[in-house]
Design a protein around this nucleic acid. Sequence first.
DNA 1: TGATCCCGCCAACGT
DNA 2: ACGTTGGCGGGATCA
Length: 841
Amino acid sequence: RSVLKTPLKQAATSHSVLTEIRPDCQPLTTPPKPKEILPADPWTPTSNLKMLISAASPEIRSREQRRELSNNTSEVLQAKHCLQEHLSGDEYEKSQPSRKEKSLGLLCHKFLARYPDYPSTAENNYICLDEVAEELNVERRRIYDIVNVLESLHMVSRLAKNRYTWHGRHNLSKTLQALKKVGEENKYTQQIQMIKKREYEHEFDFDGERNEETARSFGSNEHSEMSFVELPGMEFRAASVNSRKDKSLRVMSQKFVMLFLVSTPQIVSLEVAAKILIGEDQLEDLDKSKFKTKIRRLYDIANVLSSLELIKKVHVTEERGRKPAFKWTGPEVLPSIQDTKLETTSMTPPISESITSKEQCSKNLFPSRGKQNFTRHPSLMKLVKTIENDRRKIQSAPTSPVKISASTDQNLSAFPSKMAQVPGMAKHQLEGQSRKAKEMKMKLSRSALECNLSSPEVVPRPEPPLTAAPSQQSALTQPLGVCPPSHSSVPPVILPHPHSGVSYAIYLHPSQAHTVTTYSPSFMLQPLPCANVTGIKSINSKVLNKITTEEGDNQIATDDPAKSLTAKERPTIKSETSSQRCLKRPQALQENNVIKRYRSDEESLDTSLTFFPSGYLIPLTQCTHGNKAGFSDKEKAGICSLQHTTYSSPIAGVIPVTAPELKAVNIPAFHITPLNIMLSPTSIAAAPVLSNACLNSSNTSSAQNPSSSVLNFTLQHVGLIPAGVQVPANTVVQRAPVSSQPENGSHSSENMNLQEEKASKNILQLLDCGGLSGKYSAVISLQQPCVPKEPQEPQAATENFFRTPGGPNTVSSLSANSDGTNRISQGSLYIPQRKLEVSED
DNA sequence: TGATCCCGCCAACGT
DNA sequence: ACGTTGGCGGGATCA
């Protein structure tokens, strides 16, 4: 085949040569269409899968175009190229594929279209870069961009030079879990908060005087440079690619994804991402060009991630204006409760007994710049290095055999990678094994990570969750409604999760629908007095964002509860401000400043006030393989749809709550939410877990206190209390699905610590008493009216959590409490968000 | 304009 | 020395 040279204009040569690879097309007489129109041609109603997918998911207009184009790309392109030959320079110019048509996003689509999402190990899933590049008519360089990002997600892995293996999405959830975890460990959430706070301060501090505390905290926030996060069973291959020093695109991609996974809402602005990725430490000397470059890269990555439909572009509008951002549209990521397996599948030789592969990941992730992490002795590093090198040699050998399946991998053969072989379905279960070891390791790494942070002492907490367990037990075993009032200091709900799949949905006020935070399994929850709860929002009101997706904008506008509540909430304001006085000096000062600044902005203040926990905690079952197991198809459907609604429902997770209710309902501190799932009442109704009407009722009968009505209904429905009996409104109802799979149940219980196990038993007991059979259970814990036992403590805790300024690293302390078992320790926190709006494109 | 991000130079690496 | 990777940022496009 001959490479045609079109009489192109001047310097465009190299480019044309690269793109001109299809001499085989015949001369077309069709007049060149204006580029803009080309993409839309309906003459290829291909039933392409991609087409369907794209049609099903709302995408950005531009993306939409690209997609359509991607359906018939080859034809179009060919035609175009042919056209070029017959056009004069000028005409040609116009017919030249527009920039869009050459976008990385489109290219990525084309690339992805070549491989199945879930390839079977049977097929030959290897990728030859040269071939792909040629077939897609792009220079190889571009393919690298795509592959690198895919690699970061372990969707592909390098086999040898020019050769990659396609894994599709098989490893995706695993990867995301790992990334999320690492992100949490890296305190990305805090970093984001930090940056946002900074921005805010910059905005208001005209005197340029920087908040030293803030600055310092940033500096001390060590970490920063982490390396590639590998996946058990994958590290080998990944290692082969680890030659390049920073592998920036790959690492950047991972970090970027992490940001989404630890954020709530899962929206990350480019700016913030760039700053974090550059390294918070260097924030000061934020080199313009460096920043710019980072942004460019992020766009590259974002394009690929968008093609994967993991994120989508949106815009956040805040005081400062419109900023480009991306919203996570990928799967919810369960807190990798049992990321265990990692050690097992690790290829790490026995020698590193105490160093799990996972750990290595997380570890490398934070090579406390320069200094060697003590958890990993240099000598070990050397060893590892050697090993990696060996592998690399094998892997990168031009003639290295193409691995067909993981099992052929020398390393993997030694440690059969269950993860890699077992279908996603069973993975979760498999993962839940050797947790002990893992926990220890986790602690190790954690301590390593936090060793130079302020100590945990700081977490002001009336009662550590663990000690609270006993009392809780009693609460659980006691007849409903007879619970002694002495539980006020007990965390509202401490529920052992039968298995990791459980998640809870919290019904929130519309305005806070998006602010529920998914928290690291390591975070312990603490009871927070009502006042504080409501105050949290205000604490960082400036940093708070009102997020609204395009879908939500309208309704939020019409149904904006903020407005109707403002008046009633005034009182809350007071409590907030007053509670602030309890803050530590510096912080309090800061707060006051903030508040002062905001005083002029009535609306924003009001808005901020609308944030309060309504206290409905509803367990949901994740739409995950492992958890779907016990459900009927119908149920699954419900669950899934539920997942979908997560963000698309404007009033997601909203239950009408009026001011009176606000007062009446005893807002029970915080809850633990393994996942932040928000759903609309309707979708909830569809969810098996909540298939009872109580929820609907709560939704419709706004006249009734949702709290009590729901509770009663639920209890009755579940059979815990006879119909007619009413439970006080200030009761927290939490239902937790009990594993429908025996193995699971026992399995998980194995991993529980004694207390949890105990509690768990109690729960079961309770359930039995209630005559509850089946897979769902309900756990009720009664709560005393919110009477801040020690107003300051909770407040301080929250405060620290969010502002971390130079303050104690509350977060880490919190996580320090984690025993690795997460079910109970997840906490949903209301992360302050800057008021902002998210709009599509 | 500012947001996007294509393009391809060229350095680091591997063989 | 040569091919493969992939950092990087100028500057073209797009909105």
